[in-house]
């Protein structure tokens, strides 16, 4: 009979295993902290603003008196801004992505464009605001209009649209393109009738992502001068406007508690809009993935 093997771990191993468990707990706590912060943030906003939220708040114009003020002008301004921004950035962004993904070979121009787009994505939003102020508001004399704001926003979200659309196009299998060519379709017909339709869910998700970035952006709009007293619903793209995040900023920067409550209620409206937009995006993605399954 052989001697029984000693299976008790060495003291060094005991220490190493303890360190291992400790690190696991540490990493878990770190990740958990993110959620705690998120919960605190939501708690702070809901506890301050929920009482102020009412139909009247949504349907009233801004006012000197906190209890009579509402977000009607800001909501309409944001809606106009989002629609015009998408009308500009959507087609240009998708077209740019199609060009980069389907019609260029890996060359010098493609490389320059790629680096340029990733650098643009990192430019602070306030710099776009400065560009909008100097270029659209003053040089092109568009004034402090919805159009000037939307053009500025469109440039800001363009990298997001391009990057998301390129990913969606890349996910379309090459066999679809080959089949289309085999049927005698031209490159453009192939892109418009075969590649784009099957990339559509991904593109729409990207557009919604870009919109949810744009709807919360404040700094560029302040730069082009959208922080003004607007007590009317804009009727066209050349009207002056205010937007939801601007209204929130205006209220949050006032010392009175009543305006702070308005700011929190405005944030709740903004977050609700973001939630709706993202839910639509998720729904589209799920529909699309169900469709692709055999």
């Amino acid at each position: 009979m052989s001697r029984p093997i000693d299976l008790t771990p060495s003291p060094a191993l005991v220490v190493r295993r303890r360190r291992d468990r400790l690190f696991h707990a540490f990493a878990f706590a770190g990740a958990l902290l993110c959620l705690v912060v998120l919960a605190l943030l939501l708690f702070d906003i809901v506890s301050t603003g929920a009482a102020r939220l009412s139909w009247e708040f949504i349907n009233s114009f801004p006012s000197r008196f906190a209890d009579r003020a509402g977000v009607r002008a800001a909501l309409w301004g944001s809606a106009w801004l989002m629609i015009v921004t998408m009308a500009i950035a959507g087609p240009i962004g998708v077209a740019a992505a199609i060009y980069l993904e389907e019609f260029t070979r890996r060359g010098r121009l493609a490389a320059i464009l790629e680096i340029n787009i990733s650098n643009l994505a990192g430019v602070p939003s306030i710099i776009y605001g400065i560009l909008g102020l100097a270029f659209f508001v003053r040089w092109l004399a568009l004034g402090r209009s919805i159009l000037a704001g939307a053009l500025t926003m469109a440039l800001l979200v363009l990298p997001v649209v391009i990057i998301a659309t390129r990913e969606a196009l890349r996910a379309v299998p090459g066999s679809l393109r080959a089949a289309s060519f085999a049927l005698g379709a031209s490159p453009l017909q192939t892109v418009l009738r075969v590649v784009l339709p099957s990339a559509m869910p991904g593109i729409v998700t990207g557009l919604i992502l870009a919109l949810s970035r744009a709807i919360g952006e404040t700094a560029p709009l302040i730069m082009i001068g959208a922080l003004t007293y607007v007590a009317f619903v804009p009727q066209g793209p050349m009207d002056s406007f205010t937007a939801l995040p601007i209204q929130i900023f205006d209220w949050a920067s006032r010392p009175q508690a009543a305006f702070q409550q308005n700011a929190a209620a405005g944030i709740l409206v903004l977050l609700a809009l973001l939630l709706v937009m993202n839910s639509i995006g998720i729904l589209i993605r799920q529909r699309a993935s169900r469709k692709l399954q055999p």
Partner: peptide, 16 residues
């Protein structure tokens, strides 16, 4: 957490 607009973080800083 990444999708929350920055003006909301400003409000959080001031009030919390």
């Amino acid at each position: 957490l990444a999708g929350i607009p920055t003006v909301v973080y400003g409000f959080f800083a001031l009030t919390f």
